[in-house]
Design a protein around this nucleic acid. Structure first.
Length: 515
RNA sequence: GCUCCUGUGGGCAAACUGGCUAAGCCGCCACUCUUUCAAGGUGGAGAUUGCGGGUUCGAAACCCGUCGGGAGUACCA
């Protein structure tokens, strides 16, 4: 409403929250929301809060909260406050704040900005059946079963009798709600279009709407950065701030564009990952139900820095040509104003590119630590120096971690199968003695490094009037089985003399027999 | 249906308050390096800025209309 108020925000007091509900796994869109909140907080020296919105007891999924915490941790988005993270505004789990919400709901009843309603879910469902446009609002509430129509005595009697009830927000007629969204600008709603949202459910739990307003106020949240799916209910939220007399300190809103499916139309959903065989979640999740078991970016072989970088640029642009951002660089470059308005399609190719960039830039020793579990899972226990050198040779030839093994397994065990298509035409049995000579000269090398191997090979080729094309492909196939891979002499140096010579002899025998 | 949001090459996007041949990145295609693959380098294809009007000397930017996409519409968040 007031454009100018934005610049008056006191930088030091910024408090933002990420408020997921533990109803299952949290996909990458949720992580991005957390990221943007985190970036704003870090940039301004503010506070990043994790709040668990577990007010729907029916949808609670055990383990989901731990999943959220671990996912945030993996991405480097550590909350300053939250369940298990400390903070002075707790508890940070809404199920533990039940009484607080109830108190405010009752306060609203007192003030006349809310009322009791006794309509059963079945009765309301019947209304909707009869009229698809049915809306529990100002035009029909006087013909329904609530404290407005029943009167105080009957209302009290019903409550005392134990009839189930809910508390609903009483939306006034003929008002316009102005919202100033930090990303979208002015957004207006007519109250006549709004329904009387349930605030307190019959099980005593608050709905999202009430809980979110009460908590944001009590936790002194200054900026609400959330998905665009919340924009339509924001008018209700403003009404709640008003009803509770908190409008003066109402947080600013920023509604993020949605992340859309990689293919097809609609927003990204759980099923999209499995459908395309790509991760759309930060971490893997096991479930009894196969359809709920998902693969995460972590397990797929992504580095968290790459995922964060990718996500940051999906819906936000720094306005410069820079693409690679560390978390620190992101938080200094970030600004809500530069978040785009329209949905961004999830682009897995770009995610892979970022990962490749980060893998190439990661020191070999660090990569070795990440790759070791993968190699060990295949039954090998290489020493650190070997594994580091291996990572050095392979790192610009992989996009995700498991490819270190998939593309370079032959550094740890025998070549599974030799792709002879590249050398079939050139390999001649009568040349075998010549190649045996090359093996002998390799055997004679004392310091078995790439440089020496190259020199020896060059000399050998000159003596035998051979060209690189006659020799190198044969060596490569013999050693690796494939035409893809690091430079031949680098491979041999890493493999070592014994292994290289043995492998060449065996492979050449194999060539003789097969070709 | 109703309400709200949104629309720049295949994807992500830049172009601040209207002003030079509409950046850049991913992807794609060449070439180049390496007689491998990848990385790197160079170049290329691909956009009458959803469409139609209008305002203006000049519009992707402003106005009107129109079409498309998305979200919300629960005692779910």
């Amino acid at each position: 409403m007031k454009d100018t108020s934005n610049s008056m925000a006191s930088a030091a007091n910024i408090r933002v929250r990420f408020a997921p509900s533990p109803t299952g796994v949290l996909h990458i869109g949720g992580i991005r929301t957390a990221l943007y909140n985190y970036l704003l907080a870090k940039q301004q020296g503010g506070t990043f809060i994790l709040r668990i919105e577990d007010t729907d007891q029916g949808r609670y999924v055990p383990g989901a909260e731990a999943y959220i915490a671990e996912a945030l941790q993996w991405c480097g988005l550590i909350p300053d406050e939250g369940p298990g993270f400390g903070g002075e505004y707790g508890p940070y789990r809404q199920s533990e704040r039940k009484d607080i919400y109830r108190r405010y709901a009752l306060e609203m009843i007192e003030k006349g900005t809310a009322y009791y309603a006794f309509d059963t879910p079945e009765a309301l469902e019947a209304q909707r059946q009869a009229d698809p446009n049915f809306k529990y609002g100002s035009t029909v509430r006087l013909s329904l079963s609530n404290s407005l129509t029943l009167g105080k005595a009957e209302t009290d009697r019903r409550i005392a009798a134990g009839d189930p009830w809910v508390i609903r927000l009483k939306v006034n007629e003929n008002e316009t709600i102005h919202i100033h969204d930090l990303i979208r600008g002015e957004v207006n709603f007519q109250t006549n279009e709004l329904d009387d949202k349930v605030l307190l459910k019959s099980d005593g739990m608050p709905t999202y709407h009430l809980a979110n307003i009460v908590d944001d106020h009590l936790m002194k949240i200054t900026h609400v950065i959330r998905g665009e799916e919340w924009l339509p209910s924001t008018a209700h939220h403003v009404l709640l701030y008003r009803a509770l007399n908190w409008e003066e300190t109402m947080p600013r809103f920023a509604h993020l564009p949605l992340i859309m499916k990689p293919v097809g139309s609609g927003k990204l959903s759980k099923r999209d990952g499995a459908k395309l065989g790509i991760p759309v979640f930060p971490l893997s999740w096991q479930s009894d139900k196969p359809e709920d078991t998902v693969v995460g970016f972590r397990e797929y072989g992504f580095l968290p820095e790459a995922v964060v970088n990718f996500l940051a640029l999906l819906g936000w642009s720094p306005g410069t040509e820079q693409e690679i951002f560390s978390m620190e660089a992101l938080s200094s470059a970030f600004s809500i104003e530069k978040i785009s308005k329209s949905g961004a399609r999830f682009d897995f190719d770009k995610a892979k590119w970022f990962n490749q960039q980060y893998i190439m830039a990661t020191p070999n020793a660090t990569l070795a630590r990440l790759v070791r579990p993968i190699v060990e899972a295949h039954g090998h226990k290489p020493d650190a120096a070997f594994l580091e050198a291996f990572c050095g040779l392979m790192k610009e030839r992989v996009t995700v971690l498991p490819e270190f093994w998939e593309n370079g397994y032959y550094f740890f065990e025998e070549v599974r199968n030799h792709d002879l298509s590249g050398i079939a035409k050139k390999w001649k049995k009568e040349n075998r003695p010549v190649f045996d000579g090359l093996i002998r000269s390799f055997s004679a090398i004392g310091y078995f490094d790439a440089e020496t191997l190259k020199t020896a090979t060059d000399t050998f080729m000159a003596q035998n009037e051979l060209k690189p094309g006659d020799v190198l492909p044969a060596l490569r196939i013999a050693l690796a089985g494939t035409m893809k891979g690091p430079a031949v002499f680098d491979m041999m140096a890493l493999l070592g003399k014994t292994a290289s010579v043995t492998r060449l002899n065996q492979a050449f025998d194999h060539f003789d027999q097969t070709i």
